[in-house]
Amino acid sequence: MQPFEPSSYPRRILIVVSGMSPQILTETLFALTQKRTPAFVPTEVHVLTTTSGASHAHLNLLGKAHFSRLCRDYGLDASIFDETRIHSIQDRDGNGLDDIRSVRDNETAADYITNFIRQHTADENAALHVSLAGGRKTMGYYAGYALSLYGREQDRLSHVLVTEGFEGHRDFYYPTRESQPIDRDGKPTLDARDADVILAEIPFVRLRQDIPENLLKGHCSFGEAIDMAQRAQQPHRLLIDLKNLEFKVGDISLNKMGGKDLAFFVWLLQRHLEGKPPIEGRDLVDYNKELGDELTDLCERLQQRDESLKRQGNPSTFKGLGRVIESVERFHGIDRDAWDTRRSDLNKALRKQLGETLSERFKLHNFGKRGESRYGFSIEEELIDWTPFD
Score class of each variant (00 low, 15 high):
Ser7Thr: 10
Ser8Val: 09
Pro10Val: 02
Leu14Arg: 04
Val17Arg: 02
Ser18Gln: 01
Gly19Gln: 05
Leu25Ile: 01
Thr28His: 06
Thr28Asp: 05
Phe30Gly: 03
Phe30Met: 14
Thr33Ser: 08
Ala39His: 08
Val41Tyr: 12
Val41Glu: 11
Glu44Gly: 09
His46Ala: 05
Val47Asp: 01
Thr50Ile: 09
Thr51Gln: 10
Ala54Ile: 04
Ala54Cys: 13
His56Ala: 04
Gly63Tyr: 02
Arg69Tyr: 07
Asp77Asn: 15
Ser79Ile: 04
Phe81Val: 00
Ser102Met: 07
Ser102Tyr: 12
Ile113Thr: 03
Ile117Trp: 07
Thr121Cys: 11
Glu124Asp: 11
His129Ser: 00
Tyr141Met: 04
Leu147Phe: 05
Tyr150Val: 04
Gly151Glu: 05
Val162Ser: 04
Glu164Gln: 15
Asp171Ser: 14
Tyr173Gly: 01
Pro175Lys: 10
Gln180Ala: 10
Ile182Leu: 13
Gly186Pro: 05
Gly186Asn: 09
Pro188Leu: 11
Leu190Tyr: 06
Leu190Ala: 07
Asp196Cys: 08
Ala200Thr: 14
Ile202Trp: 07
Phe204Ala: 05
Gln209Tyr: 10
Pro212Arg: 04
Asn214His: 15
Gly218Glu: 12
Asp227Leu: 15
Asp227Ile: 08
Gln230Ser: 14
Pro235Glu: 06
Asp241His: 07
Leu245Met: 01
Leu245Val: 06
Glu246Leu: 06
Asn255Met: 13
Gly259His: 10
Leu262Gly: 07
Leu268Cys: 09
Gly275Ile: 00
Lys276Pro: 00
Arg282Gly: 07
Asp283Arg: 01
Leu284Cys: 08
Gly292Asn: 04
Cys299Trp: 06
Cys299Lys: 05
Cys299Ser: 13
Gln304Thr: 15
Gln312Ser: 15
Ser316Tyr: 10
Thr317Arg: 07
Asp337Ile: 12
Ala338Pro: 03
Asp345Met: 02
Ala349Cys: 08
Arg361Thr: 03
Gly368Leu: 00
Arg370Gln: 15
Glu372Pro: 02
Glu372Tyr: 10
Ser378Leu: 13
Ile379Gln: 01
Glu380Asn: 15
Leu383Asp: 14
Trp386Val: 05
